[in-house]
Amino acid sequence: MSEEEREKISGVFSSQAQAAVGTGTTSRKTIQKTYWFVEEREDGAVSVQPLNSNYVPSGPKQTIGREEFLDKYTPEPELYISTVYPKIQEMDSTVKRGEAHRRNHETYSAEYEFNHALDFDEQNVKANFGLGLTYLERGDTSKADDIFNRLVGIDAAFQPEHKHLFNEFGINLRKNGMLDQALEYYHKAEQLTQNDENLYLNIARAYFEKGDFKHCYRYLKKCLELNPDMEEAGLFWLYLKENGLIASDANDIPGFHPPENKKFKGVAKGPVKNFEIDF
């Protein structure tokens, strides 16, 4: 059977480890069993994520080689079918109901559904983002700050699959005046992602609103060095120069040609306040 024809490994598996219990003459050895949600990747490596006490995948994923996985892990198909799969389906449906309520600006119903999803898994990325965005929409910055503190501790929140929610949350932190939180959040992403001109642009934007033009200039320059043709960044650069916020001769970016005959709309900070970038 070819590699393409072979069925990928997936489902619930268990592993066992020996542990010592007690001390001295009362010491004895016991076997600890751990359950994992498993998915084989396209490159043949296997991703394993532990199940929490509610029998849903939660926490950081680990990656191991296929041969090592087959040697150390045992399939648990009955547990997957009877318990894990229904729990995952219920949690996902709850998150989707929360997202639908949030889109309709039904913030209290959205809050209820997202909190219910977090009862299954307090690290669920979509539920945390949804709840945080719900609080920000309602102007409840205290509760939003609690969610922010949870999200910055979840590395999975900064993975490419969550970029849309990540960006929306960061923009809303800034719009609600939570600039320090927005910057901490963006800098966490900076540690976990490759060079991203859009992320640099958002960081520059947050520093601008703090009045920190030195760091604003630094990140805007990093953005334009990666993508000299990004029009939004070029317009932002021109705005800073025309308002004396960076040196008038600061145009030493290879390949960068400032946009002509285009300006931000508005006055004072307005030109930048109405400026957003998705990535």
Rank of each mutant, 00 (worst) to 15 (best):
K221C: 05
R174I: 08
R205M: 08
E232Y: 03
A182H: 07
N227F: 07
L226A: 15
Y186K: 06
F208Q: 00
G211I: 03
H215S: 03
I203Y: 01
F236H: 06
K163V: 10
A233Y: 04
R150C: 09
G177P: 07
V152A: 06
F169A: 00
I203D: 00
A156F: 08
N227L: 12
D229K: 07
E232D: 06
A204V: 00
F213G: 01
A156Q: 12
L192G: 14
A156C: 07
Y207A: 02
G153T: 11
R174P: 09
V152R: 05
Y217N: 11
Y185G: 15
H187V: 09
Q194M: 14
L201G: 09
H164G: 11
I154W: 07
A204N: 00
L235I: 09
A204H: 01
Y185N: 15
C216A: 02
V152D: 03
D155H: 08
N227K: 12
H164N: 13
Q181D: 09
Y217I: 09
E190H: 15
A157G: 10
A204D: 01
N172S: 11
M178G: 10
A182K: 08
N202A: 03
L151I: 11
Y186A: 08
I171S: 11
C216N: 02
A204Q: 00
I171G: 09
E161V: 12
Y207R: 00
Q191Y: 11
A233R: 02
H215I: 00
A157S: 12
K175N: 15
L199P: 05
F213K: 03
Y186W: 09
H187Y: 13
E161G: 14
E232H: 04
L192T: 14
A233C: 05
E231S: 05
K214M: 04
M178L: 13
M178Q: 14
A206K: 04
R205H: 11
K222I: 03
Y185K: 14
G234Y: 06
L226H: 12
L165A: 10
N167K: 13
I203Q: 00
F169P: 01
H215C: 01
I154T: 11
L199Q: 04
L179Y: 03
N172D: 13
N195E: 15
E225V: 06
N167Q: 14
E232I: 07
R205Y: 09
E190L: 15
N172Y: 11
G211M: 01
L224C: 07
H215P: 03
K210V: 02
E232P: 09
Y217F: 14
E231P: 06
L220K: 06
Y207C: 00
N167S: 13
L173P: 06
D229F: 04
N195G: 15
K188N: 12
A157H: 07
L179C: 04
N195Q: 15
H162G: 03
L173K: 06
K214R: 08
